[in-house]
Design a protein around this nucleic acid. Structure first.
Length: 740
DNA sequence: AGCACGCCGACT
DNA sequence: GTCGGCGTGCTC
């Protein structure tokens, strides 16, 4: 810049277009003070009405469109001293906005997700146990107890950190400080983000791993866009392989990003990374304390953080020289963002790699159909990692046909005699068992015996789930909670509630009755308040302090339990109901993952699936270990229906608090739909998968078209034909996850 | 996202 | 007669 000014060739533009992180249709123009030099991408603070906001200089003053009057311009207040947002990041923001049909500002908001990111540094407060006595009158609530425990040793920690680990709000931490039990100290030691060392501690790779790693490192070193599916079952060593790709990126001076579906729960992953590279990577996820987010954001922007591991939002950080993205567990539904800007992080990551001209690796043991089809038609290359032990360690999968009398459990119980017997044998042999049921709480539905009244969430179309451990009713969609009532709210009969169907708590109860001596541990998001609690349970299982583990999806993730030899799936059919073509794929992925927990190392494992539809292709594929022909059949069905990935699909979600108005707009959209085109199918309006969510009524329309047609312009045209009042929201979901 | 402006029910 | 509800629209 200075050079330009001195040479006098380029005068600083008098006006800049600034993109603000708001739902605005376009950037706003501002006047640039004479002594300020800005370039595209510069972060600036600008006035907007009575407020001051951070924004990004989106283009130079050579904008050819309609110009806002000179006298309306207000001056840029200040330029932020940070490297400008890279051009690729800005183009990526625009691309995502246009793909998802969202305002650019809405996407930019994700890229500068920390409003505080651009503010001046401020002192952080950390908390430590200190000298303060615990006063007698202080009620030691469970949350407070946990906090004191966490802070009993070790360095001072941030309130948000402690709260996350203790599973409570930051208020409890501050409250304890006010009561004098905790001491506050200024926090100086924020993470430094030392460079991970690609040569710190390289693992010895097996032959297949080495070949795979060489393939990937060659791609990373050469640069240029490529997409590679890394396909291998649990235990085949995918992580070690893509670590080598990360090492290659580090050696060529590039940044690397690893996207994980649930970063908060992957302490094990971080440990493995630290072991391989000597230091921890920079973490990025939405539960991080704001000061830490800000710190991390800046470290990424300045290029200090070389490897970032994060949830989907990490994709929007302003990397100055990103040279590799790895999407681990690429099939996971958690990559799909369902509110605000609706996007699939895996797909956006591929676009990001394409824009940045570097390789992307998609890793999974059960790849999504989308990715498999891309690999088959040559858009992606593919590396298959065979299991380390040949096929020998594959667990033996048995289907328990629950329709058969002798296999059905007694009334109000959920475990078949066959599974009970297997559990009993396993424990007698000194091995461990696991029961999986993807349903939190005691029972999915509670109703009144007297009048048949069902306990329903006041805000959503969902039953309230009874949680006996916390003695509360919970809505699993909006977070609504209430104390379990003593009497029926309808007929006022007392103690008339009956629980219908099993949840994990109920299965735990059954098991405790069946095996009174067994040491049972629960693993659900309700019992695990944070990463520390998770780690504790994992340690207990590893130490053999647990005989039987009962849990939901959180348990399905890759933990290595050498003594775990039996996995029982209480309701394998759960998730298949509803007829969504995606349901089979999803159920297969989940159950496959759960099955993978059984029998690792030298002990053979067995898996028992309780099902009422043993002939279902999902069950058959699991029993015969034949993933590929199952997916081939799935793919054929989708191809015939022209469903994704063989066709394109988008959803319009109409929502609002007034049911009548929502229906009216949904109907108007239905009438305005492009019905004149042979190649498009319009479905709906129909109640959306959750017809009422957080107090808003929801209707959904679907549009389906051939792969060759781009739906966005059609949707744009469609939406402009219907006038939507501000009280009603119409969201566009390109590539919806569920097809119904 | 804020914040002001503007048009219809219960208060001093 | 006002105070205030939040629907609608604007911010360079």
């Amino acid at each position: 810049m200075t050079g330009d000014l001195l040479s006098g060739v380029t005068a600083p533009p008098a006006r800049v277009r600034v993109q603000l992180p708001l739902l605005l249709p376009e950037p706003y123009d501002y006047r640039v003070p004479g002594d300020m030099s800005l370039v595209p991408g510069s972060y600036v603070e600008v006035p907007l009405g009575p407020r001051r906001l951070f924004g990004v200089v989106w283009a130079d003053g050579d904008w050819q469109g309609e110009r806002v009057e000179e006298r309306k311009l207000r001056p840029v207040m200040r330029a932020i001293d940070l490297p400008p947002m890279p051009e690729i990041t800005r183009r990526f923001v625009e691309w995502v906005a246009s793909y998802t049909m969202s305002p650019v500002g809405a996407v930019l908001r994700m890229a500068v997700s920390v409003s505080a990111a651009l503010e001046d540094p401020r002192a952080l407060t950390a908390y430590t146990r200190g000298e303060g006595e615990v006063p007698d009158d202080l009620r030691l609530t469970p949350a407070r107890k946990r906090i004191l425990e966490i802070l009993s040793d070790g360095p001072p920690r941030l309130a948000a950190d402690v709260a996350a680990e203790a599973g409570c709000g930051t208020g409890v931490v501050r409250g304890l400080a006010e009561a004098g039990v905790l001491t506050t100290v200024p926090m100086l030691a924020l993470p430094r983000f030392p460079r991970p060392d690609p040569d710190a501690n390289p693992k010895t790779l097996s032959g297949a791993q080495r070949l795979a790693a060489e393939d990937l490192t060659a791609k990373v070193s050469a640069g240029g866009y490529s997409a590679t599916l890394l396909d291998g079952v649990t235990g085949s060593g995918k992580t070690e392989v893509y670590f080598e790709a990360v090492a290659a990126a580090l050696r060529t001076g590039k940044q690397a990003l690893v996207l994980l579906p649930e970063i908060a729960l992957s302490a094990q992953w971080l440990d493995r990374f630290a072991q391989r590279f000597g230091v921890r990577p920079a973490e990025w996820h939405s539960e991080m304390a704001p000061p830490l987010r800000r710190h991390t954001w800046r470290a990424v922007a300045k290029g200090e953080a070389r490897v970032v591991v994060g949830a989907r939002s990490a994709l929007f950080l302003p990397y100055p020289d990103l040279g590799l993205i790895v999407v681990d567990e690429e099939h996971e539904a958690a990559f799909k963002q369902e509110d605000g800007v609706i996007y699939h992080a895996r797909d956006m990551a591929v676009a990001r790699a394409h824009l940045g001209r570097f390789p992307i690796v998609l890793a999974s043991a059960t790849p999504s159909l989308e990715t498999l089809v891309n690999a088959e038609n040559g858009r992606y290359s593919r590396i298959d990692l065979p299991s380390r032990h040949g096929g020998a360690s594959m667990p033996d999968v048995t289907l328990i046909d629950m329709r058969r009398k002798e296999q059905a459990p007694p009334a109000r119980q959920w475990l078949s005699p066959v599974l009970r017997e297997a559990l009993s044998q396993t424990m007698l042999a000194g091995e461990q068992g696991m029961l999986f049921l993807n349903r939190r709480g005691y029972a999915p539905l509670t109703l009144c015996r007297g009048c048949g009244h069902r306990l329903q969430c006041p805000n959503c179309t969902a039953w309230l789930v009874e949680h006996r451990l916390s003695k509360r009713l919970q809505c699993h969609h909006c977070g609504y909670q209430a104390k379990s009532p003593d009497a029926c709210p309808e007929c006022e009969a007392e103690g008339s509630f009956v629980a219908c169907g099993p949840g994990v708590e109920r299965v735990a109860e059954e098991v405790a009755t069946l095996f009174p001596d067994a040491r049972i541990a629960m693993m659900t998001s309700d019992t695990l308040s944070g990463p520390r609690a998770l780690r504790e349970v994992i340690e207990q299982v590893k130490d053999g302090a647990v005989d039987l583990l009962i849990g939901t999806q959180v348990m399905a993730k890759g933990h290595h339990f050498p003594m775990l030899t039996l996995v029982g799936v209480v309701d394998a059919d759960l998730g298949l109901a509803g007829g969504d073509p995606r349901a089979s794929e999803r159920t297969f992925q989940l159950l496959h993952q759960v099955a993978g927990r059984a029998g690792r190392e030298e002990r053979p494992g067995r898996v028992m699936l309780q099902t009422y539809m043993p002939e279902n292709p999902v069950m058959q594929a699991l029993a015969s270990h034949d993933r590929d022909s199952f997916l081939a059949v799935e793919a054929d069905q989708r191809r015939q229906l022209e469903m994704p990935p063989f066709g394109r699909m988008a959803a319009l979600i109409v929502s609002g608090e007034d049911e009548g108005a929502v229906d009216a707009i949904a109907a108007a959209l239905g009438r305005a739909a492009p019905r004149d085109r042979e190649d498009l199918t319009i479905l709906g309006p129909a109640p959306a998968p959750l017809a009422i969510l957080r107090g808003r009524y929801r209707r959904r329309l679907l549009i389906k078209g051939p792969k060759t047609v781009s739906l966005q312009p059609i949707l744009y045209d469609w939406l402009t034909r219907v006038e939507v009042p501000a009280s009603i929201r119409v969201q566009v979901d390109i590539d919806p996850y569920s097809f119904l």
